[in-house]
Design a protein around this nucleic acid. Structure first.
Lengths: 238, 238
DNA sequence: CGTTGGGTTGATCGACCTCAATAAAAGTGG
DNA sequence: CCACTTTTATTGAGGTCGATCAACCCAACG
């Protein structure tokens, strides 16, 4: 039987009890019985890099529990300006608000797998499972806290601090998923980082280059390695 | 019996069934029975302008349902930079996340009244009332959506657009509370607006002056009057 | 009255953006 | 496997929007 892996080239898990992200995700709140019910409701989703999961303002037919890979969540202005409101990693739930319309667009940064649920079916299930409801709310509250932290970064930090805070924040999130590592995978482009931090590609590149020149980080393929964690945390300090 | 008013000089309502913001707030989800229980748990809170409700990183002893007046919610950086993460108006609930520590500080902009609950008692009540849990989650989801909209404003909009979007956003929120009006009360200072939008006081002042010079708004004591709603909406358009 | 906090306005500066060129990497089809 | 295109990343030169610094106004208030 094929286990669910965080690495992108995995097949979808056959059963929830083999899901590597279960304890981290909203499903962690469920007992065996509830898990079976939910399992029957889920459809596996496998998509390739660059593929769109859903689009801003479209009716939200499904909700998703990411099991592997990563995605960018973004809002577009009419003139094409883009703000990335978050990056989704394995264990993250998309559709927390159960709203009828998508608040943002989402597309895969890497090959991605997810458990997909009909939004209405999931919402009904929610009414029968207070545990899950509470867990979903905790997750939403956590997202809200992260959004508020991001507001501080966007509104009151310099370009260098933004990039440092971004790396530290991402490191923390990866750490929950795998063993803590000084190497931070960056599945997104510099443009994506810029659109997340309210900067241009060029400024992101310059700041990363500066940090590398000062031996604070080492730029590696598809990521960065932290050389001086104390220094970068000082830059990012909240 | 003294009714609960949105205007700041009101006394606290004696009973929930006279609360002017009940249908707008999380309490709107409750039936008569539940409302009575909650009523018994609540303590009235009356505080003056500038008074602090709670502070960032302190243990969260209480949660609040604002019944009149307004407050600013903000995060401080060690060096004194401030980011206002939101303004609380009547009907708003503070402590949505039920977290043990406050994620931000809050202080009153005007004289303010609220229903105060022990956080633990409210949390216990939540476990017995799925309606309220769901309503709280809806509220948190709404806050999350607003936070993401604010991220777009902070990251990808010009100073003029920021100020326009701020006015339109606040207008929408006041409209829920009172009859729609072209006059928008601004209980906060220019500094507060700047710290909300990632601008300096001077820039906020200049942008308001510019909008006034172009006859888009009229600056009045403690607020602005919208003269050209179409134009300001065009500037703020998402 | 003097004091204080909030608001406006002007002059100057600089952090980040824009535009442009180049390099490096990743696809793509023969 | 290699030309060829496309995408992504880097670097430099110059411009601009909003910040900074400073002066001043005004209303509230003891």
């Amino acid at each position: 039987m094929q286990p669910l892996a965080i690495c992108p080239n995995a097949k979808v898990a056959v059963h929830c009890d083999q899901c590597r992200v279960r304890t981290l995700s909203v499903c962690g709140a469920l007992d065996h019985d509830e898990l079976l019910q939910l399992d029957r409701m889920s459809r596996p989703l496998i998509c390739t890099a660059r593929e769109t999961l859903f689009e801003q303002d479209e009716p939200a037919e499904a909700v998703y529990n990411i099991t592997s890979g990563s995605a960018r969540l973004y809002k577009l202005l009419p003139d094409g300006r883009r703000q990335i409101v978050g990056f989704a990693l394995p264990g993250d739930f998309l559709g927390l608000s159960m709203a009828e319309k998508n608040e943002f667009s989402a597309d895969a940064l890497t090959p991605l797998t997810a458990c997909q649920f009909s939004r209405t079916a999931f919402s009904d299930f929610l009414d029968r499972s207070p545990h899950l409801m509470r867990r979903l709310h905790e997750q939403a509250s956590h997202e809200l806290t992260m959004a508020q932290d991001q507001m501080v970064i966007l509104g009151r930090r310099t370009a260098e601090e933004k990039v440092a805070a971004f790396l530290i924040g991402l490191r923390k999130r990866w750490a929950r998923l795998s063993t803590t590592s000084v190497t931070i995978p960056l599945p997104m482009t510099r443009q994506d980082i810029g659109d997340f931090l309210g900067l241009t590609v060029e400024t992101v590149s310059r700041m990363l280059t500066r940090l590398a020149r000062e031996k604070v980080i080492l730029i590696v393929p598809d990521g960065v390695r932290l050389l001086d964690v104390a220094k970068i945390e000082a830059l990012a300090e909240s």
